[in-house]
Design a protein around this nucleic acid. Structure first.
Length: 270
DNA sequence: AGTGCGACCCGAACGC
DNA sequence: TGCGTTCGGGTCGCAC
């Protein structure tokens, strides 16, 4: 489940390989993953080069000389950079071939990921990026803006932090971790969070996400990771998938909050 | 405007 | 063993 640190890791890896190669062919066995007409998609990309890769929240933004390709990996999306004669498995759903006979291959076992093209003008003014909150590890987030958004929410703080319009980049794993480090219960109402707690949540998010990026993300399941990169942040998880609280040794509670499996300590997190 | 829920997918885990 | 069923994960679109 790629969240901000995993997507950032993918971005940094791809930067080393795919830039400044002219795209010569694009094929897909599942063109429905592209929003809009697939022939238009191809025609806008072929003959052009990826000149940079950005990221906003969990979205990758491939910047070409004429257009932007936005990619969301959802649960299991991965990119590989391989030579064209290497074998292709059935879960590779898009192949972007470059002039040098290498290919950027998108693999997605569950076909959940999506791609869409946007012009520069429309990039941040139309969905999916237009309504995204600031990155959860952005140190310039205004805590007053953050708390104002929380005040409007009647659901739990966990659900609010999963809402990408409030702050972006956190998924199920890192929300559990941020709330554990903050010693705040995921069941608290979002509108009950006070200023000091809001500051604590933001500083915890920055600490955890920045550290997770350094360790190249979290590898919880044993499937092959993107580009052969295996994250190591699972070594530092406080509560997610854990059974014993690292602070007080009480059993970790595992339950559903907002339909999501949630781990937290009922003693330490209030 | 905010909330809740189904749809999108399919491999893994589970139940019989 | 082999079959059928359920579940999960993030986001969007829709109804309320």
């Amino acid at each position: 489940m790629p969240e901000l640190p995993e997507v950032e890791t993918v971005r940094r890896c791809l930067l080393k390989s795919v830039l400044d190669n002219k795209i010569v062919e694009i094929t897909s066995n599942y063109p429905e993953m592209v929003e809009g007409d697939f022939d238009d998609f191809k025609n806008n990309l072929i003959g052009h080069k990826i000149i940079n890769i950005d990221r906003k929240g969990k979205y990758l933004i491939f910047k070409l000389d004429n257009i932007n390709l936005i990619s969301h990996l959802r649960m299991e999306g991965k990119f590989f950079y391989q030579q064209k004669n290497e074998p292709v498995n059935k879960h590779i759903h898009m192949i972007i071939r470059f002039e040098n006979d290498y290919e950027l291959r998108y693999q997605d076992t569950r076909k959940f990921g999506r791609m869409v093209l946007k012009t520069n003008d429309a990039l941040f003014t139309t969905p999916p990026l237009s309504n995204l909150g600031a990155d959860a590890n952005d140190e310039t987030i205004d805590v007053n803006d953050f708390i104002n958004k929380l005040q409007k929410r009647k659901n739990t703080i966990k659900e609010a932090l999963l809402n990408q319009e409030i702050i972006s980049g956190l998924g199920n794993i890192y929300v559990d971790e941020v709330l554990a480090l903050s010693h705040i219960s995921p069941l608290r109402k979002a509108n009950s969070i006070d200023l000091e707690e809001a500051k604590l949540i933001l500083s915890s998010a920055k600490e955890i996400l920045d550290k997770a990026i350094i360790y190249k993300g979290t590898t919880i399941r044993t499937y092959t990771s993107s580009l052969g990169v295996k994250g190591e942040f699972q070594e530092f998880l406080l509560v997610h998938t854990k059974t014993i609280c690292p602070y007080c040794n009480a059993p970790i509670s595992k339950s559903k909050i907002g339909g999501r499996t949630s781990y937290y300590c009922t003693k330490c997190q209030r």
